[in-house]
Design a protein around this nucleic acid. Sequence first.
DNA 1: TTTCACTTTGCGGAATTCCGTAAAATAATG
DNA 2: CATTATTTTACGGAATTCCGCAAAGTGAAA
Lengths: 221, 221
Amino acid sequence: MFVKVLVSEDMDDINKGIYESLCDLGIQEIHQVQYCDDAYLKIKRAILDDAPYQLLITDLSFKSDHREQRFSSGEDLIKIIKEQFPDLKIVVYSVEDRLQKVRTLMTSNGVDAYVCKSRRGLIELSKAIHTVFKNETYVSPQVEQALSNKADLEINDYDIELIKELSNGLSQEAISMLFKKNGITPNSVSSIEKRLNKLRIEFKANNAIHLVAIVKDLGLV
Amino acid sequence: MFVKVLVSEDMDDINKGIYESLCDLGIQEIHQVQYCDDAYLKIKRAILDDAPYQLLITDLSFKSDHREQRFSSGEDLIKIIKEQFPDLKIVVYSVEDRLQKVRTLMTSNGVDAYVCKSRRGLIELSKAIHTVFKNETYVSPQVEQALSNKADLEINDYDIELIKELSNGLSQEAISMLFKKNGITPNSVSSIEKRLNKLRIEFKANNAIHLVAIVKDLGLV
DNA sequence: TTTCACTTTGCGGAATTCCGTAAAATAATG
DNA sequence: CATTATTTTACGGAATTCCGCAAAGTGAAA
């Protein structure tokens, strides 16, 4: 796992969640800054000290205040960092979920992971870190479509409910009966099969077990 | 769902995660305090105003500072609250995972839910809130044993590996072949079946899907 | 109303899992 | 070495899931 990580996040209440997550991951040196400029300086300094950061976790938007800044946004910082220190991995952690922005960052700017701040943000963040550590890229499920040109993943409440019952140990037949009782439709075994099949394809799952595992990992159930 | 909720959490960086989770749950009035005393006062005040809180989410340990406090810990607060306002539901949200503490809180103090701050803390927290709203109790999987007197479940590395591959989408046959290739034993399909059966019984799972779901919830894979 | 597109349901066979029984292999014991 | 216990493997049938095809139902447009 990474040993030395820098977190760049403007919120004064330094996101405890991030910190805790990083601790959980066993990261030893965790530094936090509240300005992009500080991030840049710290990164540069660390390299001079021959103890470079291995990972930068950064927000995109930073509220501006009295302090004059060279970098006003996370994007500016990222651009320079990737130019000057291409070895430093970058994980973006932001509320921004516009697909175009994600796409640009991942493809043009060479960001290694994009995690949306959300209800599952921290879990996704640790996942992202794990993934990036293996030299792979990661993007939050809710913006994953940004990378595949394919239409957006369809997963609605019905699907969630279905998978929830499945992971609850019910057989397809039992789910069918349950849905009938609760007036949820479609509710035939056949339809349930069909829907699960669609979901398996969508999530590239080999079978129902795999599907449940994937969806649980995504935090959707 | 609950309408009016109080969050008592000392960290200056008001746990954004909790707040977001509560918003996601559709809770309208969310108040946050950083001292147990403030929590107590707010709860009392709300009752006088005829708009009582329906739920209190509280941490256990509060760092002490210059302010003199009547309640120095979450436990003290909880004890008084449950005595004076037994209708107010209480969810404990803490890093503390010692079983004895959980046991005491749940059984003696009448707490409605115990959620460990962890990688899945927020998800568990919303689960807990849902559960408590239905007048049931909830405890995080990792400390669930605290309530059952049974000794710790038997589950070894082989089992973990087995379930991991299962949740990875492999069929029992495929796992058998994989284990043979990797020199892991036992590796016959029959043995794998048998082992899974044992695990299903151990974890009271209806089928393999259920088993994987349970074990994933416990964080073992 | 008819047509057309789409969703839901039904059904049958292949594949897989589930479950019990039993043989074979291995380990433990005297 | 012989005996006993335990683990591993094999096998067969029942249950469930997987998968494709076709019929029935539904809603919108012509």
